[in-house]
Design a protein around this nucleic acid. Sequence first.
DNA 1: AAATAATGTTTTATCGATAAAATACATATT
DNA 2: AATATGTATTTTATCGATAAAACATTATTT
Lengths: 219, 219
Amino acid sequence: MSTTDAQRAYNFLQSDIVAGELAPGMKLKIIDLRHRYDIGAAPLREALSRLSGERLVAIHENRGFQVHEMSVADALDISRVRLHLELECLKEAVQKGDDEWEGRVVAAYHRLSRAEALSTTESTRGLQIESRNADFHAALVSACESPWLLNLRLQVFACHERYRNLSRSLSDPARDTSAEHAAIFEAAMKHDQALLLMLSREHVERTTRKAVQFITQSQ
Amino acid sequence: MSTTDAQRAYNFLQSDIVAGELAPGMKLKIIDLRHRYDIGAAPLREALSRLSGERLVAIHENRGFQVHEMSVADALDISRVRLHLELECLKEAVQKGDDEWEGRVVAAYHRLSRAEALSTTESTRGLQIESRNADFHAALVSACESPWLLNLRLQVFACHERYRNLSRSLSDPARDTSAEHAAIFEAAMKHDQALLLMLSREHVERTTRKAVQFITQSQ
DNA sequence: AAATAATGTTTTATCGATAAAATACATATT
DNA sequence: AATATGTATTTTATCGATAAAACATTATTT
């Protein structure tokens, strides 16, 4: 009836890893996870296996599971691959996007800018912004007709989120993320492919630079 | 000591699915798989979960696992994405490739052309050619320095193998695959990027066209 | 003291049993 | 006849127990 334990474990683990609650490189002992989520060993192992296929978790034979490491090299690499996939999706989406697509983009942009406008610095705010940011970027590519491209983009996007969180934790007065989103939104609405691609590339690269900066200075 | 049951199950399932021994869309009942591989339910479920992360298997809550379906649309889509990833890898590899890389390419090409030269039509021949074909294409991209790109390429390459097998089962006197490989090899050795990309694209697209043809006429 | 061996402890991987859900089938109801 | 209800069967998902491997610690040998 309700979802399965393995599925719940998958959801919990995925969001805790991506949010950094389970630190990069951390050993994922089954006993600890059992207590943390109150889920048995079998479904936990299934969820971890699944996550290993998506590269958020690493398996080591006979010595268990581990949160995938983070590094500067990985940040640069993943950002390059994210761009390579996402720009291809965007290229197609902005070209094929119809009224339905525009509607989804408008709605997602509205929700994102509302979340960004709130000046409260609550702990939940980062989470909400990230969630709406993800929805906005998903809406932008949603007119791309390739399921494989969209799936891989999503997989990489999820892994990239760990670096976005680092980036967000470093306040930077020289950067106005809302303005970047606004510009991207405008370009999408005008179906200006070249501009949209350019702005998106810069957007991702700025975020990545900040994440790299964070890692570098915290060592 | 030796590898773990879950790992063995993963290897068996992966190659049997890719080789078509477990047919597309087929329901993967745990009891059947237990008898087939003589491996317990727990490690089997872990292996299946892992394969679902790589899109060879589909999970349906409370109704088990299934070999991922094949279709014309999927063939076209996956081939597009394979090209998008593989050409990017090749672009970088042919540019950065040094003597080591050339050595790997020469060796892999040698083994592949030997396998292709054998005129025997044994049942094992297709398997060996596919294995050496995979090695050859892996050698070509091996000078690409992005682990993420290489990983995703490999994932997609594995899923694409099911379509390559269909393609191979359809003899076509108008096509000379060995000659295509020879031309690709030459272009790589000359570090002729444009030519290599063009030939690779055609190579993949020809294979895909044949797979699509096979599916279409067998319905 | 360094290297090796023996020991106990923790953690991982797996099994067999069972609960829970889905499916198939028969029977009843409108 | 079509829908609904109940029952049996199959299949999936999960638990608790245990075997197997890795790890930490102490003892032994050179």
